[in-house]
Each structure stands twice: as structure tokens, then as C-alpha cells.
């Protein structure tokens, strides 16, 4: 990474894995994780979303609290 601009990894929610419990919303230091109320996933849950990708610092505290491994940060996912 040396010499390159470090890009911030972002949170990504697996839409159909998310059970909409909202635990991730409690731990975000930027207060940018919310449960959306527009679209139900195939299990019938309103899922977690990041409402401001630019503000996400990729700290993974949302993912740490996710009981369903529905949130990933960086990597191929």
C-alpha cells in the first residue's frame, strides 16, 4: 500500500442474510447504520443499511455486533 492512496473499506450488508435485528445500529461510532423501511428481504425483514458510505470509516464495529455474519468489511465481499 506504500505510496498509494489508502482507500477506506466500507461496510456491506448481505441483504438476504440480515435479520433486521438492529444490533449493528447500536455500535456505529458515526451513527450511520440504520434499518431501512423500504424493502423487505426474502425472510421478511427490513435490513440494515449504511446511510452515508462516504462517512463510513470501516471500523467493523457494526460487523462485530452482527449475530448473523451479514456484514462484511472490505475483501471480496
Amino acid at each position: 500500500m506504500k505510496g498509494k492512496v489508502r482507500t477506506m473499506a466500507k461496510m456491506k450488508v448481505d441483504f438476504d442474510r440480515c435479520k433486521g435485528c438492529g444490533l449493528c445500529t447500536t455500535s456505529c461510532p458515526k451513527k450511520i447504520v440504520e434499518l431501512q423501511t423500504e424493502k423487505l428481504n426474502k425472510k421478511g425483514y427490513y435490513t440494515a443499511v449504511c446511510i452515508d458510505d462516504d462517512a463510513c470509516i470501516g471500523c467493523a464495529l457494526c460487523a462485530v455486533m452482527c449475530p448473523d455474519c451479514a456484514i462484511t468489511i472490505g475483501g471480496d465481499n
Binding site: Y45, A63, D68, G75
Partner: peptide
Amino acid sequence: MPEFKRPHALADVTTHYCP
């Protein structure tokens, strides 16, 4: 780049646990 992903030892399935 920091990463957070499912550990290998945790099966890639949806659990039956409540939300």
C-alpha cells in the same frame, strides 16, 4: 485495507436463531 469477514470455521449458512 482492514477486513471483516466470516471465519472459515463458521459454516456459511443462515442460522435458525431469532433476530
